[in-house]
Amino acid sequence: MLKDFRAFIARGNVLDLAVGVIIGGAFATITKSLTDDIIMPIVGAIFGGFDFSSYFVKLGPVPANYTGSLTSYAQLKAAGVPLFGYGEFITVVINFIILAFIVFLLMRSVNRVIAAAEREKKEGTAEPAAEPAEVALLREIRDELRAGAGTRTPPPLV
């Protein structure tokens, strides 16, 4: 069983998938930072607040022993207050749209490169296959015989 598992892991598709997952995780971190640190502050400024995640609605009472801020989504959520956090949801949706758009641009570029390579392959003039040496030799003999037959005088009749 260990041998089969090793063969499965060593296959190219599994390794490609592993690399894709690792790069995807790193790419998701970059996209999250882009969203949280660059785009969302601009969107927040347009809509009246710098922290978009602070948009929420309390759906239940705040515990009596709660001493944190009543405007902090993270603190209220940690205290167990039921919240409708539409700001966080909007942040995640924007993050997804950005990530999907970047993947779209990457795939579009890859598809263009593949299409250009296929078009170049179709348009490329393939050199004809070299004829075998025997055929070339027979052709030379035939041509020599033809050329020599017209200039040769027939043998004398006895």
Rank of each mutant, 00 (worst) to 15 (best):
L59S: 07
I97L: 13
A45K: 11
M107W: 10
L76F: 02
S54N: 13
I141M: 15
A78F: 04
A100T: 08
S33Q: 10
T71C: 03
I102D: 00
E127H: 08
N13A: 08
V14T: 11
P132G: 14
R139D: 09
A18N: 06
Y66I: 04
R6M: 04
E88F: 15
T31Q: 11
L105S: 06
R108T: 05
A149F: 07
V57Q: 03
T151M: 06
G25T: 09
R108I: 02
R6N: 13
M107H: 10
K58F: 02
P156G: 06
G20I: 01
R152D: 08
M40P: 02
G25P: 06
S69W: 00
T31L: 11
G49P: 01
G150N: 13
G85F: 00
Y55M: 15
G150H: 11
T91H: 02
A7D: 11
S33M: 12
V93Q: 13
D4I: 09
E131P: 03
R108D: 14
A126L: 13
N13S: 08
T91L: 05
Y73Q: 15
E144Y: 08
F104K: 14
I97G: 04
P61N: 12
F8N: 09
G85C: 15
L145T: 06
A28Q: 01
I141S: 03
L138N: 11
D51R: 11
V62F: 01
F8M: 04
G48Q: 05
G80D: 05
D16Y: 08
N111Q: 11
L137G: 03
M1Y: 07
L105T: 07
Y66P: 09
R139M: 06
R11H: 14
T151W: 05
E88R: 07
T151E: 08
